[in-house]
Design a binder for these strands. Structure first.
Length: 484
RNA sequence: AGCGGGGUGGAGCAGUAGUAGCUCGCCAGGCUCAUAACCUGGAGGUCGCGGGUGCAAGUCCCGCCCCCGCAACCA
């Protein structure tokens, strides 16, 4: 097996709210895949970070009487903490859109798009709501007023902004979207193509600095700030040190060439991101003369009680609270197996608790305890399992991002092993015939080890505990304590 | 209106055309190594409704019914 370079990134969450379980899903999916590829011997660059510019953040910071930079620093720290909270890949890279190397990269991609003739200045006339300090579309009006500020009269305003010539990229984007695996799952490809067929319109990529100072300055025009989308999308390559030679890579290694140009590139995003990730960002890359993303995987949304989570409904699931009350691996398990990888999935505490008890406490937790109790009592030393490849069925599920199927496979093995213990009765055999009993128990330990290894991408903490228990021949602390 | 998703045993879900499966609950039995756990068997389904294509349809095609999301916080 020859190793490949694999680039994986999530989208960057906008830092105007606490970490959301939906983002936890995206991070965990990306992390499982990153760990899987690492185990396969591939070289993985795994990126996430925070999107920190824009009017919403600027206004919110001012409302709270904070300096915008201090405000985003606070949030960035919270999101960075997810690395430990969720048990993420140790080599995870974290980019902030306020990092100097990022803002420099955003300016450079701007220059390149401009060099290709795809950026131009245009007067934009529209209805503007002073309350929101934003343009509103005709279709958004309620009784001719802004839905957020019904007491204010929208005013017609003219503003000059820069635009990106997306309209010139229809054919090339269509060709891109037709490539194998450009959009995963397959059925979202049609959705992306439908956007293109409807006709791509140029989009505004800057704001007047006076009104929106919290952003990346537009090169060679100090009256304008980049619109947050244009800036944020660049993070996927600024994190690699583009366009500068990487200071963070191995000596002599250019991370951008290694992972973006020569690597397998993979982005994860929510289902509402198709236009941004598979169309706008790809067109920006084309304009800048850079390779497009090989695959973009879109997950569904996490609902709660069948409804979209909202503070007013009070059905918001806080990933930090779950991890605190249960564990990171318990959350990862639920997200992997009980939330569909591509479609909307429902997350309620009842479902979560049920799955925790049935499959973690009574399942893998109990299985580990029963085998390791036997092993510790009857074997003189830990077994040393031969390294083995993942079963094809398991690998195939992960290759296609079907984490639920991968987990189903592992739990099928858990059940089969419980069954085997009942049928072969090692606890009796070891009394009747010590040698045969020991051989059987060793066999069970080897199988437990194989399960532990398969859990590595999904539940790294649990995986390590099981492997350690088998190798050292010790019954571990209770893996999943019973709750309630 | 339009767009997207969904309707599978009591509940929640998976299902990539070829004997309808998983978790929970229920009933009966087994085991005692293990976290009052584990194993076996059983009851319980006209896979929303009606057509169509196929040797074969939960799965593909057409029509219809019902539910959810598409203002904001929010992925």
């Amino acid at each position: 097996m020859h190793s490949k370079n694999v680039y994986i990134t999530t989208t960057l969450p906008y830092v105007n709210a606490e970490p959301h379980v939906g983002f936890a899903l995206e991070l965990v999916q990306a992390d499982m895949y990153a760990r899987y590829r690492t185990l396969q011997g591939d070289d993985v660059f795994f990126n996430t970070g925070t999107d920190e510019h824009g009017l919403k953040i600027y206004r919110k910071a001012l409302e709270e009487g904070k300096d915008p930079q201090a405000y985003v620093d606070e949030y960035a720290a919270k999101f960075r903490a997810l690395k430990d909270t969720l048990g993420l890949y140790p080599g995870l890279h974290f980019i902030r859109t306020t990092d100097p190397r990022h803002t420099a990269a955003a300016q450079e991609i701007w220059r390149r798009c401009r060099g290709s003739g795809d950026i131009y200045k245009k007067k934009y006339k529209g209805l503007y709501c002073v309350g929101d300090e934003a343009f509103i579309k005709e279709s958004e009006l309620v009784d001719g007023k802004c839905p957020n500020h019904p007491s204010m009269e929208p005013i017609e305003i003219e503003e000059e902004n820069y635009f990106f010539r997306l309209s010139a990229y229809g054919d090339r984007v269509r060709e891109y979207l037709s490539r194998d695996s450009a959009v995963i799952p397959e059925w979202r490809r049609a959705e992306a193509l439908a956007f293109v067929e409807r006709g791509l319109e140029d989009f505004s990529i800057s704001r007047v600095k006076e009104k929106m100072p919290w952003g990346v300055p537009v090169p060679d025009d100090d009256t304008q700030t980049m619109y947050v989308w244009f800036d944020a999308l660049t993070n996927y390559i600024s994190t690699l040190g583009w366009p500068f030679d990487s200071a963070q890579g191995k000596p002599g290694q250019n991370l951008f060439d290694t992972f973006w140009v020569d690597g397998e590139t993979l982005q994860l995003a929510g289902k509402d991101q198709v236009r941004f990730q598979s169309i706008m960002w790809q067109a920006m890359l084309m304009s800048a003369g850079l390779p497009t993303t090989k695959r973009v995987v879109y997950h569904g949304f996490v609902t709660s009680g069948g409804k979209k989570m909202s503070k007013s409904l009070g059905n918001v699931i806080d990933p930090l609270a779950i991890v605190g009350a249960y564990s990171a691996d318990a959350l990862r398990y639920f997200l992997a197996r009980h939330i569909h990888p591509f479609e909307d999935g429902d997350f309620t505490m009842e479902r979560f608790h049920e799955a925790y008890t049935a499959n973690l406490v009574n399942g893998i937790g109990n299985l580990t305890a029963r085998i390791m109790a036997l092993a510790a009592a009857h074997l003189s030393e830990g077994v040393q399992p031969e390294p083995a490849d993942f079963p094809p069925e398991y690998g195939a599920a992960l290759d296609s991002f079907e984490f639920n199927r991968a987990a189903d496979y592992v739990w099928g093995r858990v059940q089969a092993l419980d069954q085997k213990i009942t049928e072969t009765e090692p606890f009796k055999l070891v009394k009747a015939d010590v040698e045969k009993g020991r051989a059987l128990i060793a066999e069970l330990a080897v199988e437990l080890y194989a399960i532990g290894r398969m859990l590595n991408p999904l539940m790294p903490g649990t995986s390590a505990k099981i492997e350690e228990a088998v190798l050292s021949n010790k019954k571990p602390e209770t893996l999943f304590p019973r709750k309630e």
